[in-house]
Every structure is written in C-alpha cells, then in structure tokens.
Amino acid sequence: MSVNYGSKRLVVGAHYGLRDWLSQRITAALMAIFTVLLLGQVIFTSGPIGYDQWAGIFAAQWMKVLTFVVIIALLYHVWVGMRDVWMDYVKPVWLRLLLEVFTIVWLVACAGWAIQVLWRF
C-alpha cells in the first residue's frame, strides 16, 4: 500500500509566471508615471535648469520618499528580470546560485547608495 503525504505540486504551467509578469508591468507603470511627473516638473521650470533647480525638485521630503519608492520598484523590476535570465540560460545550479547571490548583493548595495544620495548620510 502506497502512502502519499501532502499534495503533488505541478511545477509547470502558464499561471506560475503570472505574478512575475504582473509585477513587471506594475513596476514599469510606476516608473513611467514617475518619469512623466519628473519631466513635467523639469519642462515647466522657468529658465534653464541648473543644479539649484534640480536639487529643489528633490528637496521636499515627499519627493525623496516617492523617488525611493520608485527606486525600490526599479530594483525589484531588475531582480525579476535577472532572475528569469539566470533561470533560463544558466544551467549549472552552482553558477546560477552564485549569479543570483551577486545580483541580490548588487541590488541591495544600489538601494543603500540611493538612500545615501537622497538623504545625504
């Protein structure tokens, strides 16, 4: 008599990529909206834009927070894309794991750098 514990999980199928596909679209839309808003501020600034005007755009705390949220969205967008590239094209498991760990470390470092730039620590 065969005893099965738990349910068998189907590891293939179209619906497993839906979450990644949706997250890519949502983060891309957020970045596009932010870009349009930023371009609007730059275009409607009177006179030529210099360092003072550019720094003035990011001086408000809400703009710093919004910028950081968009940077986190960008980093997640990059993570999903790079993880898919590593899974699709790198066959040795040890190399794929190494590349994924390197990607995570790099993206966390980029987030730390973004915090430093935005809040000048």
Rank of each mutant, 00 (worst) to 15 (best):
M82D: 00
M82E: 01
K91H: 08
Y76T: 07
F58D: 05
F102T: 09
F68W: 02
A59P: 00
L75C: 08
G50F: 09
T103Y: 06
L107W: 00
G56T: 01
Y51S: 11
V80I: 15
Y76D: 00
A59K: 15
V70Y: 02
G50I: 10
A111I: 00
V108Y: 01
V90L: 00
V69P: 02
Y89E: 07
G81Q: 01
L98R: 11
L99G: 09
I115V: 09
G50Y: 09
A109Q: 06
V105R: 09
V85I: 13
G56F: 04
V80K: 10
L66F: 12
G81R: 04
Q61M: 11
G56D: 01
Q61E: 10
C110L: 15
K91A: 04
R83S: 02
L107D: 04
L75K: 09
V80W: 03
D52V: 14
A109E: 00
V105M: 03
L95N: 11
A73R: 10
L66P: 06
Y51M: 13
A59R: 13
R96S: 06
M63R: 14
I115L: 14
G112V: 06
M82L: 12
I49W: 02
V70L: 01
M87W: 13
M87D: 15
M87H: 15
K64F: 06
M87T: 11
A60M: 08
G81A: 03
W86E: 02
V105T: 11
Y89R: 15
R83H: 10
A55V: 10
R96N: 06
I104Q: 07
L99W: 06
G50M: 05
P92W: 03
C110Y: 12
D52G: 09
L98N: 09
L99D: 04
M82S: 07
V90A: 03
V78Y: 03
A114G: 01
Y89M: 05
G50P: 06
A114W: 02
A59L: 08
I71S: 06
G50A: 13
I71T: 08
T67N: 09
W79G: 01
C110Q: 14
V108F: 02
M82H: 09
E100I: 07
T103L: 11
Y89K: 15
V70N: 10
